[in-house]
């Protein structure tokens, strides 16, 4: 238990390490200017390109499986079958389980339901919870493009940056579960842009896309990444799973120059709290459950202080 607690909260509660002295910063050690060091990562998009290719591949696989009747990846992101193995959206499944307690519903929790639900949980526990968001979710893809437009508007000073308290997503998560319980229906699924987009891509567009467009335009002209950051209960469910994931973004303090570019590109900058000068409490840190493992920070880091890593692998296997 102590290990689990330490894993989740321990690092933040520890006393910070003393801030690096100027000569300890990576560019000073190499004897180059900050600008020269900082320009190294300019225009690097390795992980973003890999991720976008994977995301598009998965979503296209759904489409061609249906169009050509291949049977490789059937269904949609609400529930699917990969070569015969069922996969279920975890938040959908949680709602079903909640309803199951109040209605005479147990017979509907079929073997396929349980295989799908548990497979998804185990798989995303391994690859890091919200990895679903950045590597699979089609809404994330469009929101990422929208974010670029949003940043442009901000830069042009047409709109002002606005943020909310990020904890509000838990309120939404509990709220949507309660709504399912009270109405006995999957209310969230009618508003779920992931499901709507996925179905629109596979089965053809419908009126429901208007909702997705509305959400996207609010993200572009209003609040940056509004849905993903503050509302989406699917992401929250995955973040619970990802809290204890072995695969994570690894941070090495001695390579960090504290430019904090990573926090600028990050969807959930609070997960990179340790990059601020004098904030890190260990030499090596790992991101937590909210991290989508998108790899934008890895691309942007001039000192290569960030990388994909296995949590506490240094403790287990040695450095």
């Amino acid at each position: 238990m102590a290990y689990l607690y330490d894993l989740l909260h321990g690092d933040k509660r520890r006393k910070p390490l003393p801030p690096k002295k100027k000569e300890e910063l990576p560019f000073m050690r190499e004897g180059i200017s900050y600008k020269e060091w900082h320009d190294r990562a300019k225009g690097r998009h390795t992980w973003r390109n890999r991720r976008w290719m994977f995301l598009i591949f998965i979503n296209i696989l759904f489409v061609i499986s249906f169009t050509f009747d291949l049977g490789i990846l059937e269904g949609s992101l609400s529930g699917s079958r990969l070569l015969g193995l069922y996969l279920m959206d975890p938040f959908n499944s949680l709602q079903e389980l909640t309803i199951a307690g109040t209605h005479n519903y147990i017979p509907h929790l079929t073997t396929n339901f349980w295989t799908g639900f548990l497979t998804i949980l185990v798989f995303y526990w391994i690859v890091g919870g919200r990895a679903f968001c950045s590597w699979v979710c089609p809404y994330h893809f469009f929101a990422e493009l929208g974010e670029k437009v949003h940043d442009y508007w901000i830069k042009k000073r047409k709109i002002k940056e606005k943020t909310y308290d990020i904890t509000v997503k838990y309120v939404f998560w509990i709220g949507f579960i309660l709504l399912a319980l009270l109405t006995g229906e999957l209310v969230f699924e009618n508003l779920n842009p992931v499901g709507i987009l996925s179905r629109a891509i596979i089965y053809g567009p419908g009126l429901a896309l208007l909702w997705v467009i509305l959400l996207l335009s609010y993200e572009v002209f209003g609040v940056k990444r509004f849905w993903c950051r503050y509302v989406c209960p699917i992401g929250v469910t995955y973040s619970f799973v990802g809290d204890l994931s072995p695969i994570n973004i690894k941070f090495e303090l001695d390579k960090c120059g504290h430019c904090r570019d990573c926090q600028d590109v990050c969807l959930v900058p609070h997960e990179l709290w340790f990059v601020k000068r004098g904030a890190a409490t260990r030499e090596v840190h790992y991101t937590g459950g909210d991290c989508t493992k998108c790899g934008l920070c890895i691309d942007v880091c001039p000192g290569n202080a960030l990388s994909y890593g296995i949590r506490d692998s240094d403790k287990i296997f040695g450095k």
Binding site: S65, F66, E74, G75, S76, S78, G79, S80, R81, M88, D89, N92, Q95, E96, I99, H103, Y105, H108, A180, G184, E185, L186, E189, G195, R199, I202, Y203
Partner: peptide, 15 residues
């Protein structure tokens, strides 16, 4: 009535 909470709108039946 039950259909609306049992159906997760995945579309496997469609396929």
């Amino acid at each position: 009535d039950e259909f609306l909470f049992a159906c997760i709108k995945c579309g496997l039946c469609v396929q």
